[in-house]
C-alpha cells in the first residue's frame, strides 16, 4: 500500500506546554486512521501541523512520500476544528473561493452542498448558519474535487445527536468509497465505528497504534464457579477457548478467545465431569479498555 502520510519525530510546544512529543506515525492509502485521545492530547496540533497551519518545533512529515507543499494540500480535503469562512458571503461564494484555491471549476459545488444537505441554503450567508450547518459546510468544502484523502478533526464537535449521526453517515460513505481518512476524535465509539486503524495519544505522546480490531476489541469476560475451580482452570490452560484466567473471591474470571461462547465453556467443563454452579457474562467495554490503556501509561 502506498504511503499517504508519514510523521517522524514530530514535536511542538506552546510556551511551557509540550503539545506533541516525538510523534511517529505512518498512514497508508485506503486506511481509515483514527487519532484518539482525550482533550489536550495533541490531536488537533498534529493535524494543524500536517495541514500547514502550525509549524513544528522538531521532526518532519511528508505527504505522498514528498516534502510538504501547498500543492499537496489542494488534493486533500481538510476540516480542522470549527470551519471558518467569510461570514458575509453566501455558502456558494465561500465554496467558490475554495474552488479557486484548489484550481477547480465551480461545477462540483452543488454536488457537495447536496451531499451535506445544504443545497437549499446555498444563497444564505455563512453567518446565518447554525453550528451543525457550519460543520456540514466544512465537510462539504473538504469534499470539493472529490479528494482521495480526508483529514477531519472532531467533525461532530458541538453537534446535536441528529447532527452527529448525519455527519458520521457522510464520513462513512466517503470511507466506503476507498478514500484515506485521518480522523481525530476524543469519542471512542466514533473511531471504532468509522476507523480501521487507530493511534492513541495522551499528553502529546503516542501510547499505542495499530488495527482497531487488535487494539480495541470488545472482549467477552465470564465469571464461572464450579466444585473445583482449580481443576477447571488447569484444564482450560493450553486450549484455545480462553486467553486469560484469574481467580477473584472464589470465582474464576476468564477472557474468552474470539468466537468462543459461554456455552462452549459450559460444555467443556461438563466433558471434564465438572458441573458449573455459577456463570455470569460481563463484557469489557471499549471505554474501559481505552481508560485502562491510558491509565497503564500513567503508572
Amino acid at each position: 500500500m502506498k504511503e499517504v502520510l508519514s510523521i517522524k519525530g514530530l514535536s511542538k510546544s506552546y510556551k511551557h506546554v509540550k503539545a506533541i512529543r516525538n510523534l511517529n506515525l505512518e498512514i497508508s492509502e485506503g486506511q481509515a486512521y483514527g487519532l484518539l485521545g482525550p482533550n489536550g492530547s495533541g490531536k488537533t496540533t498534529t493535524l494543524s501541523i500536517v495541514t500547514g497551519i502550525l509549524r513544528q518545533d522538531d521532526g518532519s512529515f511528508s505527504w505522498f512520500g514528498e516534502d510538504p507543499n501547498p500543492m499537496q494540500r489542494r488534493s486533500i480535503g481538510s476540516l480542522i476544528e470549527t470551519p471558518h469562512f467569510y461570514p458575509y458571503l453566501s455558502l456558494v461564494k465561500n465554496l467558490r473561493i475554495i474552488c479557486d484555491i484548489k484550481g477547480l471549476g465551480y461545477s462540483d459545488i452543488d454536488r457537495v452542498l447536496d451531499s451535506a444537505n445544504l443545497l437549499e441554503r446555498k444563497r444564505s450567508r455563512f453567518s446565518s448558519m447554525s453550528l451543525g450547518m457550519k460543520q456540514r459546510l466544512g465537510l462539504a468544502a473538504a469534499l470539493l474535487g472529490d479528494p482521495k484523502v480526508l483529514v477531519l478533526d472532531e467533525p461532530t464537535n458541538g453537534l446535536d445527536p441528529e447532527g452527529i449521526a448525519e455527519v458520521r453517515e457522510m464520513v462513512l460513505e466517503q470511507v466506503k468509497t476507498g478514500k484515506t481518512l485521518i480522523l481525530a476524535s476524543h469519542i471512542l465509539s466514533e473511531v471504532e465505528k468509522i476507523c480501521d486503524h487507530v493511534a492513541i495519544l495522551k499528553k502529546g505522546e503516542l501510547l499505542a497504534n495499530g488495527p482497531v480490531k487488535e487494539l480495541l476489541t470488545e472482549d467477552e469476560i465470564i465469571e464461572v464457579s464450579c466444585a473445583d475451580n482449580g481443576k477447571l482452570s488447569k484444564a482450560l490452560q493450553g486450549t484455545d477457548l480462553v486467553s486469560e484466567t484469574s481467580e477473584e473471591n472464589g470465582t474464576l474470571v476468564m477472557t474468552l478467545c474470539e468466537g468462543v461462547s459461554a456455552a462452549e465453556i459450559n460444555a467443556f467443563a461438563f466433558s471434564h465431569q465438572l458441573v458449573i454452579s455459577h456463570m455470569l457474562s460481563r463484557k469489557r467495554s471499549l471505554e474501559s479498555q481505552f481508560l485502562e490503556l491510558v491509565k497503564q501509561e500513567e503508572e
Partner: peptide, 17 residues
C-alpha cells in the same frame, strides 16, 4: 479575526500567497 487566513492555507494557499 475570521480565521480565514487559516482556511485558505488549509485548502492550499501558501503563507506567501
Amino acid at each position: 479575526n475570521n480565521h480565514t487566513f487559516k482556511t485558505q492555507v488549509i485548502f492550499g494557499l501558501s503563507r506567501s500567497d
